[in-house]
């Protein structure tokens, strides 16, 4: 069988493991619940009800997506090693890179399923309260899904060599820093101290700018979204994942499973 066939087998098994995991449903449940509460929050306000509703919805989707990405990503890879299921899998005609890529693909597929469920909830809530739905909303959800895939790649990289506790912390840290680097650079460039300027510029360049994946504001205010605003982050995300996964495979290759 081809390399692709083996990767698909690993990915399929990963999805199956995830969807038989109860914690995942708990997270998903709260995600959908929060999207639903948008209705409540928006009804408390006289102005801009639709916007509040959709802002809460899209933010919940992105935040719970991230939580699921970190939790599921780190856990499912670590579990294979910890429970030694990896011993039998790697004794088969399967390279470690194929294993890791299969794992990653399965995790992304799982996550995108969750995003799809939350997106359906978002659409339902919007329709119920008569808020407008445009291509901008679709673009926002797609880019959010790409961002989550990048996050899973980060989780995969950290899980390939460190403990789940540290891997979760690092991945969460990466997520937070990735969202503030743009603001930091703005702040830094206003500073008179040149070392602060270089520092914040360096941070901005070395961490991915995850805000590039955030079209929430554009979507809910109905601002025009250019093609470049969608295509560039997409390519950027794919390239970044490629680098992260290559690194993860290199680390994983050398590792002793004992």
């Amino acid at each position: 069988m081809s390399s692709l066939g083996r990767i698909v087998a690993i990915a399929g098994n990963t999805v199956r493991e995830a969807i038989r995991n109860k914690v995942l449903y708990a997270l998903l449940f709260f995600g959908v619940l929060l999207i639903g509460t948008g209705i409540l929050v928006s009804s408390l306000s006289y102005v801009e009800g639709d916007r509040i509703l959709q802002s809460v919805g899209l933010s919940s989707l992105r935040l719970f997506g991230a939580a699921i990405a970190i939790f599921v990503g780190v856990n499912l890879i670590h579990k294979e090693v910890d429970r030694r299921t990896i011993y039998t899998v790697l004794s088969k005609p399967l390279s470690r890179a194929e294993f890791l890529i299969g794992k990653f693909a399965g995790l992304v597929a799982t996550l995108w399923l969750q995003v799809a469920v939350m997106a359906v909830a978002f659409v339902a809530v919007s329709l119920l309260s008569g808020a407008p739905l445009t291509g901008g909303h679709a673009a926002a959800v797609v880019l959010a899904a790409i961002e989550l895939a990048v996050l899973v790649a980060v989780a995969t990289l950290f899980s390939s060599f460190t403990t789940p506790m540290l891997a979760s912390l690092f991945t969460a840290g990466f997520y937070v820093v990735g969202h503030v680097t743009r603001d930091l650079r703005e702040l830094g460039s206003q500073s008179d101290v040149s070392s602060v300027q270089t520092m914040t510029a360096f941070l901005h360049r070395s961490f991915p700018d995850l805000e590039a994946f955030n079209l929430t504001t554009h979507a809910i205010h109905g601002l025009p979204i250019t093609q470049a605003q969608v295509v560039w982050p997409l390519l950027y995300g794919v390239a970044y994942m490629g680098v992260l996964l290559t690194l993860a495979c290199l680390v994983f290759q050398r590792r002793d499973f004992r």
Binding site: T85, Y87, K92, L94
Partner: peptide, 14 residues
């Protein structure tokens, strides 16, 4: 490895 089978010690499985 398609010609090799392996049963680990105290195996854990999915």
């Amino acid at each position: 490895r398609r010609h090799v089978g392996f049963l680990p010690e105290n195996p854990y499985f999915y």
